[in-house]
Design a protein around this nucleic acid. Structure first.
Lengths: 256, 256
DNA sequence: CTTGACTCTCAAGCTCAGCTTGAAGGCAAG
DNA sequence: CTTGCCTTCAAGCTGAGCTTGAGAGTCAAG
């Protein structure tokens, strides 16, 4: 738990005290735990696999242990993000990283995520079946540049709920995006109380879809259930699109 | 090899001479040959597979033969491009298509390749300020493969209104897409009467946004008015995104 | 109204990416 | 010196994305 960072076993090469500025290399297990927050399906074997595929190349101890530097970890995070958010196959990620835009420098790698990603977030929240990644409040606040007050307000309204783990609030991907969207709306003067409108319509629509798919969702046949879940995702996508269109239609009258 | 297009066997429904304006549907074999130019690894079985995966839904002859309209082919080309150039899995392509970035319209789809491809690029049909293009009912019906009954129903409900010009109904881009989306929903069992839910929430949200931007929109200063319109578009986009997120959030509970 | 090219469905199978698992053993620090 | 993390290597698993084959039907040209 926690950030599982320094606390971990075998954090090699920290030598003496915490005086040394940037000499901290981590073992594979520590790296894995550190990334588990953002990437729940990471595993030691996966990291090793990525190395086998020439995407990583960490230092080794005399005894053969892998030692990951900070930039190794950054690179790994980049790889995982490109895979998860941009759906790039490893073959292509390897090229992207190799061909210029990123050696190892953190700046360079950060730039890569931007440049390769081009636009922000493709998948993010469209999936009903969540990946399970959680982000600490501090990160969310920094990324969305949201007002902490507003986050609290959202929690009070029950729009988001977060998860309290050893003293810090954690939010999932969807919640993070909700916070971002609401922050954006706030810039235009759409206050917290107005969110009721959005919330209640979402509730109604969810109820509608549930009702329609209820039989299949309750089915004990797992195949049928899986199909229903897929249908649910598609329905959500189409329904959202329809809502958008209807809103545009209304707004056009207003603008007209 | 030329375009290998008209030369093909069984180019159905061309009936008599070349008098018919837009009645050209192709069989699967013809479509396949036509696309082989750009996509060498296309195959008939692959096209059928894509249909099985709910990415396509062509008309059929009485005997069960697939008949691909021009817009079906455009859609298919979009799918293949997203797959080849963007490495998107079919799952994601399905969502991208369902959730608006591409209906079928040529402009819209071109925009999709762009927008999904990476640049920001707003979708053609979401703009509050309409382009003004109008499509005759017959075209809309063919493209969306909507039930005429359903279109009438939508008009009764006041969701769309169309325009009567010398005997034929004409619809704008947004209306056409609404019809498409509703048709899609109908395939999942979301009937006409359920649309009230969507409509009323759109109305409420429009009212909210109007209220917020009312002063600026009423302004006599054209500059200020233009700014307000832009704000309206952004608000609409963000609001739609937020609604989608909230819906996902609710659905996750259901699915859980 | 036949003929032959084309198409249909359905079930089974195939390939490859992307990991996971297990066995058999070595390294590091309390 | 023991305990827990680490190593390699080979084999295996899973799901996506098609392909193949069998058996039957459709369509338009002749």
């Amino acid at each position: 738990m926690a950030t599982a960072n320094e606390t971990n076993a075998h954090a090699a090469e920290g030598s003496a005290a915490d005086d040394g500025p940037p000499q901290k290399s981590m073992t594979i297990g520590a790296v894995c735990k550190g990334l588990a927050q953002e990437f729940p399906d990471i595993s030691i074997s996966k990291i090793r696999y990525l190395e086998e595929q020439k995407l990583l190349n960490p230092r080794r101890t005399a005894g053969g242990y892998r030692l990951y530097s900070a930039s190794d970890v950054v690179r790994l995070r980049t790889i995982l993000r490109l895979q998860r958010d941009e759906f790039l196959p490893l073959r292509v990620i390897r090229q992207e990283l190799a061909s210029g835009r990123a050696g190892d420098g953190e700046g360079a790698v950060a730039a890569t995520v931007q440049s390769v990603a081009g636009k922000r977030k493709r998948r993010a929240s469209v999936s009903v079946t969540d990946g399970g990644a959680m982000y600490p409040l501090a990160d969310v606040l920094e990324e969305t540049r949201a007002n902490p007050e507003l986050v609290r307000e959202l929690e009070d309204y029950g729009v988001i709920k977060g998860e309290l783990r050893n003293g810090t609030h954690y939010y999932d991907e969807t919640e993070r995006e909700i916070i971002g969207a609401v922050t954006e709306l706030a810039r235009y003067g759409v206050g917290g109380r107005n969110l009721r409108v959005f919330r209640s319509s979402a509730d109604r629509e969810a109820a509608l879809l549930q009702q329609i798919l209820a039989p299949a969702l309750r089915s004990r046949n797992p195949e049928r259930r899986k199909e229903a879940l897929e249908a649910l995702e598609n329905l959500a996508a189409v329904a959202s699109h329809l809502k958008h269109l209807l809103l545009i239609r209304d707004l056009r009258k207003i603008a007209g």
